Computed example of a mutant assay.
Amino acid sequence: MIAPAGSVDRIATALLANGLILRGGFNFTPGETPPLGPSAAPAKAVLLVGQAGAAPWPQFLRWREKQSGAIANPLDTWSCEVIGAVAETFGARAISPSDKPYLPFQQWAMRAEGLKPSPLGILMHPQYGLWHAYRGALLFEQELPIEAAEAPIHLCDACAEKPCLKSCPVEAYSAQGFAYQSCLAHVRGANGGPCRTGGCLDRNACPYGTAYSYPPEAQAFYMAAFAGL
């Protein structure tokens, strides 16, 4: 098991080698039922791992080029390998948002960074806007020196125009929620080319964090994964 002193900084440095960053964390409190840690005892702390912008994209592409065959979910596989290696080094258990039964990653993220959802459901970050993601988490069986997050200004509250709700040709996002089937049918259909190649039009319409927006090839990759193309 790692010693708490200085461990969080060392983990952050290890993740940066692959373009990943720590996205906050917290110690579980008495009365909670946390997931199990590396030795199957209840975890006492969690650190979230993710990305800002497309920083991991070059590392992921280099890894993918080295694979001998097709992989069903290559980005998830790469993320699990990278985060798993860091977990092994630092005596943690690595978990993924795709693991079943699903763990409350979005609730953990809101708790760890004080973020709130945008109208698109993606958490709004004060610096990255909608251009960030959570790729996994590290569970520890000892508490870590983690400062409680202060809730940042929720940028969506200051956005009167809400262009993120006006750019989708099939109005997939509304006050009623996400019309998943309408979005999927459009992306797969004859008129979905701009979405397939350039990403979600609603997401791209958001004025915040545009310096971190994913490049077109990354957005096309994510959209293809969403649509099963």
Rank of each mutant, 00 (worst) to 15 (best):
E150K: 13
F178Y: 15
A137N: 11
A160S: 14
C159R: 02
A133S: 15
Q127K: 14
A133P: 10
Y102E: 09
L144H: 05
L130Q: 00
L155C: 07
A148D: 13
L165I: 06
G136P: 14
H132F: 15
K100T: 08
F105T: 03
G129L: 07
P104N: 11
P119Q: 05
M110C: 12
E147P: 00
K100I: 02
M124P: 00
C164P: 05
E141K: 07
Q107W: 09
P117W: 12
E171G: 00
Y128M: 01
G136C: 15
K116R: 14
Q142W: 07
E113N: 06
P163G: 15
A158Q: 14
A148N: 13
I153R: 12
K100P: 01
Q127Y: 06
C164L: 07
P145L: 12
A133L: 08
S174F: 10
M110R: 11
Y134K: 03
V170N: 11
L144I: 09
R111V: 10
L115G: 08
P145K: 10
C156I: 06
E141F: 02
A149L: 04
P163R: 12
D157F: 06
Y102T: 10
H154D: 15
L155S: 03
C168E: 03
M110F: 05
A149M: 14
G114D: 08
Q107E: 12
Q181D: 13
A172D: 02
A160D: 10
P119H: 00
A172Y: 00
P126G: 07
L139G: 01
D157A: 09
Y128I: 00
S182W: 04
W131C: 02
A172G: 08
P101K: 05
L144G: 01
K162H: 08
Y180C: 06
C159D: 09
G129D: 05
E161K: 13
P169Y: 00
K100W: 01
P152Y: 06
L144S: 03
P163W: 07
A137C: 11
